[in-house]
């Protein structure tokens, strides 16, 4: 199933209050109709196993697209088809307008691929590793030293230029691999579980790097089963389960569609009934429930379907009536909840 992607994402303006508090991580205008990766009824079968089932993937140009699903859901199979490493059983796949089965060479020059394992030669120096892959991408010898310098600077490995690759830490190897995918300046990066197996610090570094790359006009299509990584940086997500696309689209749309209500928790010092009454008179209120008090302070849970102005009016309504508010916060609709809601827990 493919989600309709009607209104284009509007960058920072549309961020929810909770997101705005975190500060904008990444914001860009994305034309939802300009697809850089597209699959139509893509299927991959291994004998009886249906690894990819009628997948319609739509990744707009410039997006950071998080491809989420449990292990064995078909993420790697999809990526191997997109990177020309595997033939689909049926269906079509296009990258940058090129067919993965008919124009593999064009596809290869459009993509930078990082598999879910390191793939480094141990008997090489860091710069030789990049030089080798740059040469494999037919970058002229004279251009390579400058390119390697820039790439190492980007992934913060300039100081390890002459070290042997096998002396690098896991996180550094991962960054080196990412630098390798950029050697030929591809428009799309296809990254299979880029943060898996990394310590928290290295994970944050990779995440920052991906945001940096998105700012350099790269489309990033990456898979993950770690939802925190996805929700923090993605502009788009696709949720795959048992080879099928369960939901996909801009992350804000997904949140709206799947979690239509915003939840606001208000903590008071007293006057709970007045508070309930004041809020119930406002528009777009779906429900008001009393929660167990915390430190003897009564709390209200308000389900609300309006916009930010409505939230501000709610707070105003309480304060104008001199109701003692100690805390007024929106419960961020986290992706985990979305994920749990749409997936059924079937793992192939």
């Amino acid at each position: 199933m493919s989600e309709p992607m009607n209104p284009p994402a509007e960058g920072i303006e549309e961020m929810s209050a909770a997101e705005a508090l975190k500060g904008p991580k990444f914001a860009v205008d994305i034309d939802e109709t300009d697809l850089i990766i597209e699959t139509r009824a893509l299927n991959k079968r291994y004998g009886k196993l249906h690894a990819v089932n009628n997948l319609d993937l739509q990744v707009p140009r410039g997006a950071i697209y998080g491809f989420v699903g449990p292990n064995g859901a078909g993420k790697t199979s999809t990526m191997r088809i997109l990177t020309t490493l595997m033939r689909p059983t049926s269906g079509e796949a296009y990258v940058n307008g090129f067919s993965v089965t008919q124009q593999p060479r064009e596809v290869r020059s459009s993509i930078g691929y990082m598999p879910d394992f390191f793939g480094v030669y141990e008997d090489m120096k860091v710069w030789e590793y990049l030089d080798f892959f740059a040469a494999c991408y037919e970058i002229p010898e004279n251009d390579r030293p400058g390119l390697i310098r820039d790439l190492l600077e980007l992934v913060d490995l300039s100081h390890r230029r002459d070290d042997m690759v096998d002396k690098l830490s896991r996180g550094m190897k991962q960054r080196l691999c990412l630098a390798r995918t950029l050697a030929h300046d591809p428009s799309v990066l296809i990254l299979d579980e880029p943060a898996s197996g990394l310590d928290p610090r290295a994970r944050v570094e990779i995440r920052e790097l991906l945001i940096e790359l998105a700012k350099m006009d790269k489309t990033i299509f990456f898979s993950s089963h770690i939802l925190a990584d996805v929700s923090e940086i993605c502009t788009h997500i696709g949720i795959i389960e048992a080879g099928e696309m369960v939901a996909q689209g801009p992350i804000k749309e997904m949140r709206k569609q799947l979690m239509p209500h915003r939840v606001i928790i208000v903590t008071l010092l007293g006057q709970i009934d007045e508070a309930k009454e004041a809020i119930s008179q406002l528009p777009d209120i779906q429900s008001i429930t009393e929660l167990d008090p915390e430190d003897n302070k009564p709390r209200l849970r308000i389900e609300f379907s309006g916009e930010d102005t409505g939230v501000s009016e709610m707070l105003q309504a309480l304060t104008t009536r001199s109701i003692p508010v100690v805390n007024f916060a929106e419960e961020s609709s986290n992706l985990e909840t979305v994920f749990m809601k749409v997936t059924k827990g079937i793992v192939t």
């Binding site: 990177t83 490493l85 060479r105 993509i111 691929y113 793939g119 480094v120």
Partner: peptide, 13 residues
């Protein structure tokens, strides 16, 4: 064995 084959195959080599 070094898991570098896929990397080579996706280059233009």
């Amino acid at each position: 064995e070094h898991q570098t084959y896929d990397l080579l195959r996706t280059t233009l080599l």
